[in-house]
Design a protein around this nucleic acid. Structure first.
Lengths: 186, 186
DNA sequence: TTCGTTTTATAACACTGTTACGATACGATG
DNA sequence: CATCGTATCGTAACAGTGTTATAAAACGAA
């Protein structure tokens, strides 16, 4: 579908505010009505982009190889999280921020998006089975903690709210490692 | 200024999309031009709200008492962070998310907002001096890590992206404690 | 071909932020 | 007190947005 591709381009190249239906329709030589018959409106279009964003995201996270050191695997997943987000930052803000007021993903696409989180929980489970992490805490909780650190740091970075002059990449890695250490058996 | 108060109310009660200049002007029996002569436009109004939001935020964080256990103080700051954000969640999304496309705070108000972060760094410094945290890492980095965890978890919570049926408050606290433990001397 | 459904284009509606223009109000200066 | 200058305000218009009613066109099946 040309409309969806162009919408992704507009979003990536010029940001959410450039994604107007008239602009989008003109770019692919059609009319705004097409968006309504094919998707159902702008929220539905955003929903499709949301879905596409999580698809790419999940693809990249799933490509992180599985070693016999699950904690190190988590670190690599986290680093991949950041790289993916920065690579598709306009998609990222659609997925994790409120660029369009009142936009909420369909529960259907939301559930599909939640699948992105599964590999993290599985890796945490391996770390627990491994004895690296204490079994006191549910793997979902530990996974959520690591997920939140990634999300928090990356969104602060994308929005430019981080202290200036800070070399973010190494700080990100050390932070993730420190947080993982917090769950470690000792 | 009645305009700013009403803007805050609209933002808090009905969300960012209800904050239109005509609506706002009508609610205080004036005209949209007032916003332009008094503030300079909608971005400038948002800037004022941004400032107000960080002022409240910083006030609450500064109210956390200082004990002789700086690590515990950090935990309390984090819990206060979450409570404050949830209490003024509409302000929070203006401060930390992109509810209005292309809105960026003035560097002036941005610097003022950065002051909110100072108590965190100071408390981390006390924890390092105390011997609770290793001196290997700059206090800004540790502070940023804790700050990011708060931001990440809270924004996921506000946007409803968290796993349903999850009791968030205790998870939040355990997560923050685990992350603080990650920096601990051992 | 003919019928029915889907997709499309045009145009309008209601809404948004913004601004030019003129009127009003206010405060300090003469 | 009068006058001037500035700041504020109201009306109206402009350009842009998402959305929708209506009608035309395209397409596939009978």
């Amino acid at each position: 579908m040309k409309l969806l591709n162009r919408a992704g381009e507009l979003l990536s190249n010029e940001g959410p505010s450039a994604l107007s239906l008239r602009r989008l329709a003109a770019d692919v030589n059609t009319s705004t009505t097409a968006v309504y018959s094919l998707f159902g409106g702008k929220p539905a279009l955003l929903d499709a982009l949301y879905d596409e964003g999580f698809r790419r995201f999940g693809e990249r996270l799933a490509m992180v190889p599985e070693t016999d050191d699950p904690v190190e695997d988590l670190i690599q997943i986290a680093l991949t999280y950041r790289e993916s987000a920065l690579q598709d930052r306009q998609f990222y803000v659609v997925m994790f921020s409120k660029v369009v007021p009142d936009f909420m993903p369909t529960t259907e696409t939301y559930i599909a998006a939640s699948g992105t989180f599964v590999p993290v929980v599985k890796t945490v489970q391996r770390a627990i089975d491994n004895g690296s992490f204490l079994p006191d805490e549910a793997p979902e909780v530990i996974g959520l903690a690591l997920w939140s650190i990634c999300h928090g740091l990356v969104s602060l970075e994308i929005y430019g709210i981080l202290p200036p002059g800070l070399e973010i990449a190494p700080v990100f890695e050390r932070t993730v490692r420190a947080s993982a250490d917090g769950w470690r058996a000792r």
